[in-house]
Design a protein around this nucleic acid. Structure first.
Lengths: 203, 203
DNA sequence: TAGAATAGTGTACACGTGTACGCTGAAATA
DNA sequence: TATTTCAGCGTACACGTGTACACTATTCTA
């Protein structure tokens, strides 16, 4: 039951997904993409699009899912690097910045649709960010032996800071990015220190 | 030289600006607005739009400027409240949340265009945020006697956290907003504490 | 092997868009 | 007062959009 047909279908589905991803850029957001253009870039007739997605939104939500997945895989990578020794914060920020550099369009998608026009998109993005935050929260809880609330607050703040830095990085050149990374690292240290202090204080 | 004509022109210009602002919502971003619809809402023929703006972008940039202005006026208000006594952080967050509640559409505009499709818009928004950050930076520097770098890092991080909380507040109900405000206050305390600590440490 | 299912095609349509153009009436100017 | 200026109007156009529909060719199924 391999299914020559199903196989081919999956293949052109990917073509559509990749076409959409390729058309995203600093100057073009997902909502500006037209079904026709995406189909064209994928080498399909416009109407063939419907054999794979009900509408552009369905494609878009798929993209959001994939971007979130990429993000989580990335952080697993970062954890591996950390185990080999090195500053947790430094390595995390560096890894994230590398993600921005090589997956700019995926990140742009998350960034834009987070405050976009569709409730469904906003929900999807904030779900992905929540996953991301939760994983960090678990890590902090174990590594620093903090209570749940404090480590959640820290994780949430850290993710916010890092995402914001990522957004700035998109428009920045090499040296600006370096400076940005340094700033971000310091700010994450503020948060970590504050969390430690104010948590032990409440005991 | 009052100019009946100039006066009338200014009046319908305002009509256009307000019409655009009114059409912004959770479901409609500025880039989705059409010149025709805005003119219609203002009670004008579509082509009359051009008597006031060269294109929709020009109107949009005007809106961004006004939103930034509102934001800064807001913080002056907050400072007055603070002088009457009370926690700096608490009052600032509360004031900001009130802004979100009564100027949701202006805030949405800033939020969306910050990562939007137009370089000019992105620049305009980040300029407004920079002003906002700088004012906070000055304040922190004087109030806490910190060095420039540390107070800038703190201001920058604080603004990021508060904006992010504001974005979440847009989709939240009353009780969620309260919880959100509490979280934000704690996170700002983390940052403040961390900044104090790590600044004195380096002396 | 005959018939059903279906991925992909091309045509056609109604719709909303920005904007060029010429016109009108009232305000400004000389 | 005679002339110029100009905010606002309506028409008209070309363009890109989503998608309904009928058709073809190939794979799947019984």
């Amino acid at each position: 039951m391999s299914g020559i047909r199903a196989q081919q279908k999956e293949k052109t589905r990917r073509l559509l997904i990749d076409a959409a991803l390729n058309q995203l850029s600093a100057d073009q957001s997902f909502s500006n993409l037209s079904l026709r253009e995406v189909a064209k870039e994928a080498g399909l007739a416009a109407t063939s699009f419907y054999r794979h997605f009900n509408d552009m939104d369905e494609l878009g939500l798929t993209l959001v899912d994939e971007a979130g997945l990429t993000l989580r895989q990335l952080m697993r990578q970062a954890r591996l690097r950390i185990e080999k020794g090195g500053s947790v914060i430094q390595i995390s920020v560096k890894t994230f910045m590398e993600f921005i550099e090589s997956n700019g369009n995926e990140f742009r998608l998350l960034l834009r649709e987070r405050s976009g026009t569709s409730t469904e998109f906003r929900a999807a993005v904030s779900r992905e960010i929540r996953y991301f935050t939760m994983e960090l929260c678990d890590y902090l809880q174990k590594a620093n032996k903090l209570d749940v609330e404090t480590s959640y607050l820290q994780a949430n703040a850290a993710v916010t800071i890092v995402f914001s830095a990522g957004a700035e990085a998109l428009d920045a050149n090499e040296s600006e990015r370096q400076e940005l990374a340094d700033r971000t690292i310091k700010q994450l240290r503020f948060i970590a220190r504050g969390a430690m202090d104010l948590s032990s204080r409440s005991k």
